[in-house]
Nucleic acid binder design. Structure first.
Ligand code: SF4
Ligand code: SF4
Lengths: 165, 165
DNA sequence: TCATTACGGATATACGGTATCCTTAAGGAT
DNA sequence: ATCCTTAAGGATACCGTATATCCGTAATGA
């Protein structure tokens, strides 16, 4: 069970986009260069964000991506689910149905609508994970970053993004 | 990001073992037959549980596995971590170090000891997930099962396990 | 002694993640 | 009107890991 590269990239890209001037578009190439990740592959993650309605892209020169709404209306869960999907981490293969001592009627009751105790516990934990991610917004990340990063670095990063427009 | 078969099997096996008479050993073959899963593969999950000290195996005829301690001292997290490992779900590849505007000293400060804001949020969610799993014990599962399952099915399951000794 | 069992190494296979390439359509600049 | 740039998305090759099986070994009780 592991989250992979694209999720991390997407989160960092959103952080960069959130710090940009409003209405400013940033192309995939710049985001890829800035993070040092393959452009074509990062593009897939950005497309996922676009399909989820978190960012929107525009074509042509001076095109690229920007956020569709304010950073305080985008949660970590939004980004993670956009890239990683909304499938629950625990998948029930319905082992129950294999029990050798089931009657036909009991076997027919083993449906998705009646999940067993094990699945309920695992899904509750899944919900706790998602609730935690939902409780942090992109604006919170920006605030943390502004205290974590030195003013000099923040200025240099902004300058780098400016000259690559 | 997905939990796979062996975790589900391990949880169900623990539930069965918890319902057994104390000091009774149940071999891998019976556990595999009861759940309808491949015996050799299930064996790997049981070995993981054994290494984690949740179950213990004994050799020879009438051998098999049993729990090492009472069901109220085994949590879901114990079982999940034994099979799935203790690695955090979010792996930080240290993208920061690729930022084009870092000085040498800043780059050297990007260590595991100083995780960035993104990683901290993801790990907090990971902790929430584990806390949720830790809060449910095997004894809780048994209690739920005893009310969920019909008395007839419980009797039949116990009988099946008895005649396969 | 013998059958049975856990244990762990080795191995084969399948699947999904990783990464790249290419085509298409659309927007802006000239 | 034309050209360049860019998102969008399909196709594909590659690789690693998960899945699954097999076998040898040691230990245990009958
Ligand atoms: S987790 Fe529950 S629902 Fe899923 S297979 Fe196991 S018993 Fe059935
Ligand atoms: S998550 Fe944070 S620590 Fe991990 S790579 Fe991204 S910036 Fe660095």
């Amino acid at each position: 069970m592991q989250l992979r590269g694209p999720v991390e990239w997407a989160l960092h890209c959103c952080a960069v986009l959130a710090g940009l001037a409003p209405d400013r578009y940033l192309p995939t190439r710049d985001l890829a260069d800035f993070h040092g990740v393959p452009k074509e592959y990062l593009s897939k993650a950005l497309q996922a964000l676009s399909q989820a309605g978190i960012v929107e892209g525009t074509l042509g020169p001076a095109g690229g991506y920007r956020l569709t709404r304010a950073p305080d209306r985008i949660t970590f869960l939004d980004v993670v689910e956009a890239v990683e999907g909304r499938a629950p981490t625990f998948v029930c293969t319905n082992i129950r149905r294999n029990f050798p001592c089931l009657t036909a009627t009991e076997k027919s009751q083993c449906t998705e609508a009646r999940p067993c105790a094990v699945a309920r516990v695992m899904w509750q934990a899944d919900r706790a994970w998602r609730d935690s991610l939902r409780s942090v917004r992109l604006s919170d990340l920006l605030k943390t970053l502004s205290t974590d990063l030195s003013p000099g670095l923040q200025r240099r990063a902004a300058a780098w993004l400016d000259e690559h427009s």
